[in-house]
Design a protein around this nucleic acid. Sequence first.
DNA 1: GTGAAAGCGCTAACAC
DNA 2: GTGTTAGCGCTTTCAC
Lengths: 327, 327
Amino acid sequence: MATILDIARLSGVSKSTVSRVINNHPHVSEDSRTKVMEAIEKLSFVRNARGVNLRTQTSKTIGVTIPVLDHPYFSPLVGMIAAKCRKAGYKIVIFQTFYSIDEENKIYEKLTENELDAVIITHTLLGEKKIKQRVRDKIVLICNEPLQTRHLDVFSLDERDAVYSSTQYLLKEGRNQLLFCADEEKTPLQRQRWEGFKQAHLDLNKSCTIQQKLSGYSTIEEGILLGDEIFSGHCNHDGIFAGSDFLAAGLLSSAKKHGVSVPKELSIIGFDNHPICLTTFPALSSIQNQTELMVKDLMHCLLDRLEGKKFPTVRKVYKGNLVIRGT
Amino acid sequence: MATILDIARLSGVSKSTVSRVINNHPHVSEDSRTKVMEAIEKLSFVRNARGVNLRTQTSKTIGVTIPVLDHPYFSPLVGMIAAKCRKAGYKIVIFQTFYSIDEENKIYEKLTENELDAVIITHTLLGEKKIKQRVRDKIVLICNEPLQTRHLDVFSLDERDAVYSSTQYLLKEGRNQLLFCADEEKTPLQRQRWEGFKQAHLDLNKSCTIQQKLSGYSTIEEGILLGDEIFSGHCNHDGIFAGSDFLAAGLLSSAKKHGVSVPKELSIIGFDNHPICLTTFPALSSIQNQTELMVKDLMHCLLDRLEGKKFPTVRKVYKGNLVIRGT
DNA sequence: GTGAAAGCGCTAACAC
DNA sequence: GTGTTAGCGCTTTCAC
């Protein structure tokens, strides 16, 4: 593998000049430039990024956390982030946490080891202090998770409000025995959803107990399994608030299997307004959010931070709305 | 940020000893070790990976290509790869190609720039020569794409055979006007599928024309749109071979909307046996593949290559089978 | 416009 | 068991 020194020798100039040519610096004579270019061509030289990284103390790489790579909500979210990063000249490395605190800690470790220029956290089981303590002065942005913090930039959806108004909608429709299904309940996001659910009941003078809350379900398979459990005996619920559209689709197919009529006997509301909503029968009602806008603002802020611009911590919240379909 | 030199000074030993402690080398006195550990603790030192990367000429990072991050087949595939890489101590950086040759070239560029220790290609629009020419002597493995090459390790599914037998199944069931829907038709994989489709017709003395082949469809939305086109007028097809389960689900929902009875008038077969198959009505028939096994073998080979083991090019093909459900 | 020289943070061969 | 030393490949002052 040729280095700039090889190029320098072959073209009869110094390492500095070669570097200038590679980096398109001005103030290089046309003569030197062509000689260097020829040498580069001849030795099929490619610049070794590891040298650059050490010297410049950057790597043009951004870390992103995701619970699982294959996730109907997080995959598109991270995909959007990745595409925008690429456009700005950054690569992204993805860390799957599997909702494990250990795995989450590891990404912060990588950040402090300077392999990453910044990290975007899409969900977290850790609190502000823990995160801060691990990342110290590095660039960290929170995307999607409504983390309570005054020291990190946070871009999140108004989960509480979205669930609140959807729950009220169901209650006002005459549904009384609602069920709330959460993914991983220990994140701030899931807590907010549950609060919205609870508050909606309170504000309409309806009781709401912890028995109405189920946790740890999110995939189609889990929806089917859960549904088989709920619907096999006597089901006294007339409405289910599912944490994701996939879960909702699984529940719906199970309900049909057990002869539970949707939406007559049972209403189901999903989350994220994934296209899968259109393939079920009846089509799934779901909560739609402004994720694109959120990512756009996030990237704007990230790029500013990477440029070293100074400004106060950003905190933005985006409203969602219920899309009513057949369930 | 403290460096090993700072640690060395504070603990009264040399850089080498600090390095030995950090890397758990034997032959370090208990005394030195504790002194170093204390200094590390005191200065909250974390090793700077950029220095290590330059020195060792590795980065414990593997690049993986994916068409889009949010893809019902590729997301779980890459997720599995990522999880196994992590276990082996490697990070992965994901490159979305969006089926663009330009984007694909960029990942090979990164590879030659030494930012990556190896690359896993899951699909490609380029031929063997182009890839070889760009990556030169770097480690490249092909996962999923049945690329014709004698110089790269290839792990792929027997797409041709899976489609062949499924098509024969449909034809023998009495279906005569089949439609074949491909994702991005320019990859070797899609060509193989089409060949299987064609051959199945030939072997049963049925005609098969290029008009039966549709390309560029893969998502639920595209399935619905395509279905609306096909089913709105008079539909003379009695069987559709969809390139993915999501596409199939979209087609199915559109068929129902237009009053086309499935499976009576129309049969639909999907690909990948995604859980979504269980949520449609009727449940989708689909082709199931041995992806887990493929990834397992791939990783084994990759790790061997990274260790520098020498062995002839590996080429493995895995059989799939049709899971018959309601469509 | 160009080159010499310093150094980013780390590891490892070698000598003791 | 430990320190000295060289150097991975690159960028960037600074002087000319």
